[in-house]
Nucleic acid binder design. Structure first.
Lengths: 217, 217
DNA sequence: GTCTATATGCTGATAGAC
DNA sequence: GTCTATCAGCATATAGAC
């Protein structure tokens, strides 16, 4: 009896958190109503304020739960480079890992990705946190990797543009609104094959150009 | 007296339309209130419904006014190609023209660009119209240009990925929310210089790779 | 044409019964 | 811990005075 009661309590709070992740991911913070979340979670309208104090606190909790060390695999990649061959492999790995992340269909990764998109287009009070804990480390990891492959003395602004160039080709897939997202992914190609072909084209845009500049292949 | 009256009428309607462009561009359709638009236009709250029937009709009117033949310069570019040198020049021109468009600070172009971003992330009833009259022709123009430079027999899916690859590097600049947009543009570089350097890197990712593949430079 | 006042509905949040 | 009922605020939209 006592355990069942405690279990139901845990259930309600957890159900709200999961429903909130899905709904916030779908349309962002503003347009998502507390009533909508409670209905999806199968709890009373007052439950959000009872368990989470406010809609905004619930949103904060969603972020804290979803963005736990999610960028670690990407940030670990630059350390694997020790020569030109391993640099090329690391670049491919970085891009493929990033593409796999942003095009993941399975929650909670998908929710996490969609939330980054909403925060970029309609920044909330969570943007600074997201920037410091997610965007910034990821960008630095990509920047470090790119700098390793650049000819010595490459202009800093050019390096910065290279960063944006790669990032934008990954970030574009975080916007999952159906009519737009459907235009991005070619139909009838298995996901892993698409990821590899896309990564090859993105990485090829870098490596072949550097080969062209430096005379190495 | 009579003319002044008629002039004020024209003024009010036009002021509402201009204010609506700015406000809708800033935060999108949903979060922008009629009151906010009316306040910015210096008219009464009831004026929107008097002149435009509804908020949604006003939004439609904003689109109809802003997206008048705006993609024409880009769509004209593929026709200028007649050999490999002119193809490379055309590719650079396409990318530079597109970058100039999406990073334009001056209204109404800026408003138009921002509206495309909102419609991609939070599609409304205007999305199909926008797709048919703007996204689709632009993508086709880019696709045509890319196909001209591809080695004969290039896989159709690869061509499609190339399209997205270029488009994403342009589209990323349409999201103008300050904290994010500030991360994209390197400081202390004149706009035209930045456009050329960025276009060179995007185009270089294509031409050098094709050169690498085909043995031509 | 322009205004005020108001109808109607949705939002987040809370008070208090059980 | 969970519920209903309700508050205050904002939204779009409209009726009717001037």
């Amino acid at each position: 009896m006592n355990t069942e009661h405690a279990l139901n309590k845990e259930d309600a709070k957890k159900r709200i958190l999961l429903a909130a992740m899905e709904k916030f991911a779908d349309r962002g913070f503003g347009p998502t109503s507390v009533r909508e979340i409670c209905e999806a979670a199968g709890v009373n309208v007052a439950a959000v304020n009872y368990y989470f104090r406010s809609k905004e606190q619930l949103y904060h909790e969603v972020f804290k739960t979803l963005f736990e060390d999610v960028g670690a695999p990407l940030m670990a990649i630059p350390a694997k480079v020790h020569d030109q061959a391993s640099w090329k492999a690391a670049l491919m790995e970085w891009i493929m890992t990033a593409l796999r992340l942003v095009t993941e269909e399975k929650p909670p990764t998908r929710w996490m990705v969609q939330l980054t998109a909403h925060e970029r287009t309609h920044p909330s009070s969570m943007f600074p946190v997201l920037y410091e804990s997610f965007f910034k480390p990821l960008r630095e990891s990509l920047g470090m990797l790119l700098r390793m492959g650049m000819p010595a003395g490459t202009d800093e602004t050019d390096t910065c543009i290279w960063e944006i160039t790669v990032a934008s080709q990954v970030v574009v897939y975080t916007h999952r609104a159906p009519p737009w997202y459907a235009l991005l992914i070619p139909p009838d190609v298995p996901r892993e094959e698409w990821i590899e072909r896309t990564a090859r084209i993105i990485a090829g845009g870098i490596t072949s150009r550097l080969a062209y500049q430096t005379g190495l292949s």
